[in-house]
Design a binder for these strands. Structure first.
Length: 364
DNA sequence: AAAACGGGGTC
DNA sequence: GACCCAGTTTT
């Protein structure tokens, strides 16, 4: 950058901050950006849109209003409030981070991004977001929105998923954020990505940055940022059993280190080649619990897409025949009344099966 | 460096 | 149905 450009210096950060201060969307954590609320919001906002987060945030903060209350809570209760939000390791890490804060930091979070970065569930983005929004530290928080805005603004061709792009963007933003309100600058960049500089059909006519934007000026907003397209994901057929015994249903708790760790589900597993689906249920239940069951009618089939595979899961009504339930793959097995299904944290697909099971059993 | 990790919104 | 989203952790 020449000396002349440097003296004139870029003015868009200040203009963008003013725009944000006028036009930003109201959010529960924006009216009171306390460290705790900012923290909860930023964890929930990882890979999750604002409109989805808001009701979860309100419930969560209502039930767990402080680091101390959260640290003292049972993980199962934390997961229950997280149910449906996904990426459950966020909830486990958040819970753990609260405990570390209370035990080793005297309940006060580190005041810098570098310090926050040490806590579980906090990576480069979240550390910078909390440090800037809650404590005013001038560090750029670089998320998917900011990568997109900056790729277009400066014509950066490094692919989105390449870590080098985030490094480049952070390096370019660092001198800029020092001249403005760091909290508002970071939020303004993300707000621009969410409302104006959208992945498709960006609203360049209403963008304060368009005068400076390489992609806009060269008509390449549809080519930047560079994104590699995802490969095809595998598809699995799953059979599970809703096993009844004396009016109770068997549920299994997944190990915490697994996918969907800590959540409860019905025992079952993947269909093998040339296997009849209801036999899959019988086999998997035997393998996972040691129980012999008589398989009955299919209750419901649900399709579900995870981030890296898809499933079609069919639940069969089963009757306990013999054996004492012992956990194999699961950490814990429990016979519960149907009315208690609602109390246990479950993955989305399992929740749908639970609802169908109770409805069916109530009618019959 | 790449893969694993959920679920919902959007076009 | 593909793509995207206020990313982090593990391998």
């Amino acid at each position: 950058m020449s000396k002349r450009e440097n003296r004139l210096s870029v003015t868009w950060p200040r203009e963008l901050v003013r725009w944000f201060e006028r036009e930003h969307r109201p959010m529960p954590w924006r009216s009171d950006p306390s460290p705790y609320k900012v923290w909860i919001s930023e964890i929930m906002l990882q890979q999750t849109q604002v409109v989805t987060v808001i009701p979860y945030f309100d419930r969560f903060v209502g039930r767990f209003p402080s680091f101390e209350v959260l640290a003292a809570a049972d993980l199962q209760d934390v997961l229950k409030l997280w149910e449906g939000l996904g990426y459950y390791s966020r909830a486990r890490n958040l819970h753990q981070a609260a405990r570390v804060l209370v035990e080793k930091y005297k309940g006060k979070p580190p005041l810098t991004a570098a310090g926050l970065r040490e806590l579980p569930g906090i990576g480069a983005y979240t550390a910078a977001a909390i440090a800037s929004i809650a404590f005013g530290e001038p560090v750029p928080s670089v998320d998917g929105n900011v990568l997109r805005v900056c790729s277009r603004l400066w014509g950066l061709e490094t692919p989105m998923r390449d870590k080098a792009l985030a490094d480049e963007v952070r390096a370019r933003l660092t001198p800029l954020i020092r001249k403005v309100n760091p909290s508002h600058f970071n939020q303004a960049m993300m707000e621009t990505g969410a409302l104006i500089c959208k992945p498709r059909n960006p609203q360049c006519s209403g963008c304060l940055l368009s005068r400076h934007c390489v992609a806009f000026k060269t008509n390449r907003t549809d080519e930047l940022p560079v994104v590699e397209k995802a490969g095809i994901v595998p598809h699995y057929r799953i059979a599970v059993g809703v096993v009844w015994k004396k009016g109770r249903i068997l549920i299994a708790r997944r190990a915490e280190k697994q996918m969907l760790g800590g959540l409860w589900e019905f025992p079952g597993g993947k269909q093998e080649k040339d296997e009849v689906l209801d036999e899959t249920a019988v086999r998997e239940i035997q393998e996972e619990t040691g129980l012999a069951v008589r398989v009955g009618v299919p209750i419901v089939t649900v399709k579900h897409a995870y981030s890296h595979f898809k499933i079609t899961m069919t639940a069969f009504r089963c009757e306990w025949l013999s054996g004492r339930a012992r956990p194999k793959a699961a950490v814990e097995l429990k016979w519960i009344l149907p009315a208690a299904l609602v109390d246990y944290p479950m993955p989305r697909a399992t929740r749908r099966i639970a609802e169908a099971s109770v409805i069916r059993s109530g009618k019959s």
